[in-house]
Design a protein around this nucleic acid. Structure first.
Lengths: 366, 366
DNA sequence: TTGAAAGCGCTAACAA
DNA sequence: TTGTTAGCGCTTTCAA
């Protein structure tokens, strides 16, 4: 059925004109019914809808976007999809976008400063309604292109300094790091090693600041390691820190890769977790629950990050006049697990409560 | 500089016409220079290029795609991005696509049969040059839409039966499973548990077949469990199998989630790996190397899968006449790690060589 | 409220 | 080899 209708075009997809003819109205009316941009008399609208149904008409978004200024595509640039955090972020964005009838154009910069502006430039030529962007690092090489494009843009996860004019959505990095570290200090740790990939990325610095704030407040000692993004060299560097005479009794790893590197370094230097050294990571993954010991980790609310970023973009895309920038910072849960315990030798002070996390869900609108 | 040129349009992006005027040629010539579709005299081409540079002209892919039949966009549909295998597949595809000047439109079906056709339908309305598709399962609900669209389509990873007319790229599932199992049998295992998510997905069945073939050939016993895609219930089901009087001494987990579930089940039932039970998973991830014991796993050549899928699609998109379907199956490496050892009690037979993998890289063109 | 007509920016015909 | 013309499928004036 309906095949007689469809063969008419000899394989050609039906267009607005076909629908208009079938419904005995003008193409403009078809458009108005379908986009809802202008009112159409009920009976005519029904005729149009029926014709659409009968012909199996699907509007061509390419043509629609070419003509109109309002598009329903979002450009998304993340450093890499191999990083589960970004993969989950993109998936959450895609889910929300599709639910709202929007599409996603996805690109990756490969954590490469030279690639970022190239990727953004290509994205921009597609004239998306907006951009969701995780910059490579503080240098944010795509910035001039984004600004010149005039497109709405939300920075997610990494918000370089000087980007106060951009919308941004990220977690409360200092807060999460402080809360995590405070717990370690409570348990009696006095030498804490914070492992960052690079301090050239704002969120890394913010996490380090959080750790430092807690450590300083407690009069303990902070060891800071900038270990790079690669697992192997990072593990070696961490092992180096562990092999000193006065090694840390707790490690806070600021990315998943560094958590893995820390685990490797601890194993290689013969440390048991948590007996010899406690470990806490950023970003929670399924394997951390199953690992023995199970690894404690800061849990980022990825779905929430995606939701806020998308809603912001949609709002801005639909807004008539320019909106003031909006900076959202979300609080994080921490999954306390077996990798956390008090320091080994003479447990100096610290209460012996069970390591339950204080409930700190909520939102921090800066 | 060049600003005087750019302000002319009063913020308007320059078009082919602007470039044509600036270079004193026709719009068609500009198009021909930029797309390289027809020859243009060197000096004129140089003039055009100079004008492009001076005006900061960027072609609008929307308009180009609307007019021409050849598009440089690929539609990609995967079940989910939260699964690192698919995330890495998409990343590898994106990398190759971008290198070739193509873009990716990404959608996810959420492993949902109802969502798959919806997602594909939206993808198709964008008129991509081709589709890369990982079906939800054998039911492949998007199939009629894909066929009706007439678009080139490569099935990746999951190739439902009856899809011989489609191009497909996947690993040699039976071969990988057979090789893995053969090694376990060599080590003396006689009761092997294969854990699949669901037998409604072809690659799961193929893996099971591979395990079964090896087990049968060795006269050993195969235990098959269809454990679902969720970690918790799967772990419970696996624990059930382990708690019987005659438990398996080796587990082959057919997905990453099931590998995690198996680990959990083993821990919960007090089994040590590999002393009480050996474990081998499908899909290798960073944490498996760091886990104690390190987890052995079949390594899928994701980059290669992506490369072949993309090249195939590009070939088909550029081809004049229809090409015969091409079914590629790639051999896999196996990362042999600590989670593999002989069975606990009376190690019956089996040579005591070191568990090094036989080199079996290569391609199997079915 | 509706229709006719004019493009959005580009490339494919066709003619020169 | 080049320019002219037309039109991809849609939305948006503008006039009725």
């Amino acid at each position: 059925m309906a095949d007689d209708e469809r063969t008419r075009g000899a394989g050609r997809r039906p267009t607005v004109r076909d629908v208009a003819r079938a419904a005995a109205v003008s193409p403009a009316t078809v458009s108005n019914v379908l986009t809802g941009r202008r009112a159409v008399a009920p009976e005519r609208a029904a005729r149009v809808l029926a014709a659409v149904e009968r012909l199996g008409y699907r509007p061509d978004p390419l043509a629609a976007n070419l003509r109109s200024t309002r598009r329903a595509v979002l450009g998304v640039l993340v450093p890499e999809l191999a990083n589960p955090f970004f993969a989950e972020l993109v998936e959450a964005l895609e889910r929300r976008a599709r639910a709202a009838g929007w599409r996603l154009l996805v690109a990756t910069s490969g954590e490469d400063r030279a690639e970022e502006p190239r990727a953004i430039e290509e994205l921009v030529t597609w004239r998306p309604a907006g951009l969701v962007l995780v910059p490579v690092d503080d240098s944010f090489p795509a910035r001039p292109i984004v600004e010149r494009s005039g497109l709405p843009c939300v920075l997610v996860d990494r918000v370089p300094p000087g980007c106060e004019a951009f919308d941004s959505v990220a977690i409360d990095n200092p807060g999460a790091a402080r809360a995590a570290t405070a717990r370690l200090l409570e348990l009696g740790h006095r030498r804490i090693l914070a492992v960052a990939s690079t301090l050239a990325i704002a969120n890394m610095r913010e996490r380090v600041e959080g750790v430092a704030a807690a450590v300083t407040a407690a009069g303990a000692r902070l060891d800071l390691l900038e270990a790079g993004a690669e697992a192997e060299p990072a593990a070696a560097a961490i092992a180096g820190k562990l092999d000193r005479s006065d090694p840390p009794t707790a490690i806070v790893a600021l990315t998943t890769t560094l958590t893995l590197a820390a685990l490797r370094a601890l194993a290689e230097t013969g440390r048991r977790v948590p007996a010899d050294c406690a470990l806490l990571g950023f970003d929670d993954h399924a394997w951390m629950q199953v690992a023995r010991p199970a690894i404690a980790a800061v849990r980022q609310p990825i779905g929430e990050l995606a939701r806020l970023a998308f809603d912001r973009l949609r709002l801005r895309a639909g807004a008539e006049q320019p909106l003031p920038p909006c900076r959202v910072r979300l609080a994080c849960d921490i999954a306390w697990r077996e990798s956390i315990a008090g320091p080994p030798a003479p447990a100096p002070t610290g209460p012996s409560e069970s390591p339950a996390a204080p409930p700190n869900r909520g939102r921090l609108n800066v």
